[in-house]
Amino acid sequence: MQKGKFIQTVLLTAAAVAAFTVPCQAESTITGAGATFPYPAYSKWAYDYNQETGVRLNYQSIGSGGGIKQIKAKTVDFGASDAPLEPKELDESGLMQFPMIMGGVVPVVNIKGITTGQLKLSADNLAAIYMGKITKWNDPKIAADNSGLKLPAEDITVVHRADGSGTTWIFTNYLTKVSKEWKEKVGNDKAVEWPVGLGGKGNEGVAAFVGKVDGSIGYVEYAYALQNKMASVMLKNHDGKYVAPTAENFQAAAAGADWAHAEGYYMVLTDQPGANSWPITGASFILVYKNQTNAAQAKEVLKFFAWSFKNGDKSAMALDYVPMPDAVVKMVEMSWQKEIKDQDGKAIWP
């Protein structure tokens, strides 16, 4: 009697599980993994796209390095990375990459009495702070660029990312370009050997440390600076002008980029010329295989990205990202046509 009941329960449960899973499998699902920075935009697009087409996107924001690992292991349909792969690495692994969305990395400070846009930092000073060469906020070098601003005699606490991150890659890429000492001693990577400072996990970890520690400076994605109402700084750009981190200024930095001549879309948008260019701008990239075993699935993936390029600008901007310019989107779609092939060597797109 008891046994019978038990078996009955098991069977019922199994039937219920099956009833729930089968329709999900029937409906097509795209899987992707990688960068955390564009995750809010991707998930918004995925939601809208699902509403419209019924296709689901399962995007795991495990970080750029993880995304590259996953696509190389072929466990996902696409990978996402904030740091572009070099053309050589793309060739070796048979991948193609294209830029999907852009954004800015913003230095933020927590100094008593200083609000957004009040503190101006030159590239040299920013690098010197992160090298541990400038340790007080009232250092004459900082004061020289900030006449009229009362700077406290407070210790500077440098905050950086503790985890490997595309944000760090963009930030250290900028410091490498503007400081010879940084280039020689520290370098450019997703994680580096920081000369000084505290490490926070993720953008939110850095935001939390900067929020809690007086006299601290950190760097976060623009959206985090806005959402946490953090005091961002003005940076001196390539043209020697002080600029604020705004969507327009990120776009200005992206506008001059010569995507047409960037092999494998390897393009870094830091320290770009232009009067309004925000110097620490970066693009986030998507990685897919050039040679696709499952052409139908590959086409679903490309369809999603094409839809996002076409319809996603508004929602991306609402989330403080910068959409790719139309000219670049055209180029990317041309590249899909040229480079992504099925098993018989036929183009999958369009």
Binding site: I68, D163, G164
Partner: peptide, 9 residues
């Protein structure tokens, strides 16, 4: 380990 494992390439 908690911080760096996911991004260690």
């Amino acid at each position: 380990l908690a911080n760096e494992f996911t991004e260690a390439d």
